[in-house]
């Protein structure tokens, strides 16, 4: 077992043994989907025209997958903050393992959890009115992995310098929630005022959501998607690479301030 697989396995075992985490991670998105979905189903009219018009439950579905990915991925790194004092992190840092494999182990572990949670949520597909093709699902899983990796790595980046879990929760609410709300997950890019549209265009999550949405309709083009599939995947991949790079650079600094 290499250091990387050991750390990956650790994340998985810890998650599987913590039932409350599994229930929370599934319950929250399910609740969001059902409440927002039923709530807006009757009143929300999609900008897409004629026969292509989709119901709100269908529109929201890829957005909720994105939510599962974002929150599971980022939340998995909260243990880094908790372990600052409890010893595991320090023990890992005094071991002759490269910082990069520590980051990659934690990142792949968190990304796997995010992917598993998203896969569980896919069991609700029959209720969504969506009928993805097998190849479309393969693309979907790949996109899920990219988003999972980006946001676990982002979590490691935040967690590295954070001393309390309170601060971590604040980041979740101030950064992650707006990023999700302004990603085309809850309402489409078309039809919003120009300044908001600019914010949404610059938001990397917009492209993740768009890639998820496109893959669910593949090979057809998705209604109300923010960007074409190719562009969406490209931006998501560049974002993942950028965050991984920043994180790998950040953890080279000592754990404790000089």
């Amino acid at each position: 077992m290499t250091a990387l697989t050991a750390l990956w396995k650790r994340e998985i075992i810890k998650f599987v043994r913590d039932r409350s985490r599994i229930i929370g991670a599934l319950g929250q998105p399910l609740g969001f989907w059902l409440l927002l979905g039923f709530g807006f189903q009757g009143t929300f009219r999609m900008p897409s025209n004629g026969d292509a018009a989709v119901g709100y439950m269908e529109f929201l579905f890829p957005g909720v997958i994105a939510m599962v990915l974002l929150f599971t991925a980022l939340f998995s790194t909260i243990s880094i903050v908790e372990e600052r004092k409890s010893g595991f992190l320090q023990a890992a840092l005094v071991a002759p393992t490269s910082r990069l494999s520590l980051v990659l182990g934690a990142t792949l572990g968190g990304a796997t959890l995010a992917l598993l949670q998203a896969a569980l949520f896919l069991f609700l597909l029959p209720l969504s009115g969506l009928h993805p093709t097998p190849l479309g699902l393969v693309i979907l899983v790949g996109v899920c992995a990219l988003i999972g990796i980006s946001f676990t790595a982002l979590g490691v980046l935040f967690a590295w310098r954070m001393e309390t879990t309170r601060g971590f929760h604040a980041v979740m609410n101030l950064v992650l929630l707006p990023m999700w709300l302004l990603s085309g997950a809850v309402f489409p890019l078309t039809g919003v005022p120009a300044p908001l549209r600019w914010v949404m265009t610059l938001n990397p999550v917009t492209y993740g959501v768009s890639a998820l949405r496109q893959s669910l309709y593949w090979p057809a083009s998705a209604p109300d998607a923010s960007a074409p599939l190719g562009l969406s995947i490209a931006v998501s991949a560049v974002f993942a690479a950028l965050i991984l790079y920043l994180t790998a650079r950040a953890v080279r600094r000592p754990l404790f301030g000089d």
Partner: peptide, 28 residues
Amino acid sequence: LGVIFQQPALDDELTVSENLRIHGALYG
């Protein structure tokens, strides 16, 4: 170097042998 910190560096939810295997892997 072997270091024992003020707080044990173990995961509560993991078994004794799982904990030791993970740390052994960190030392290659």
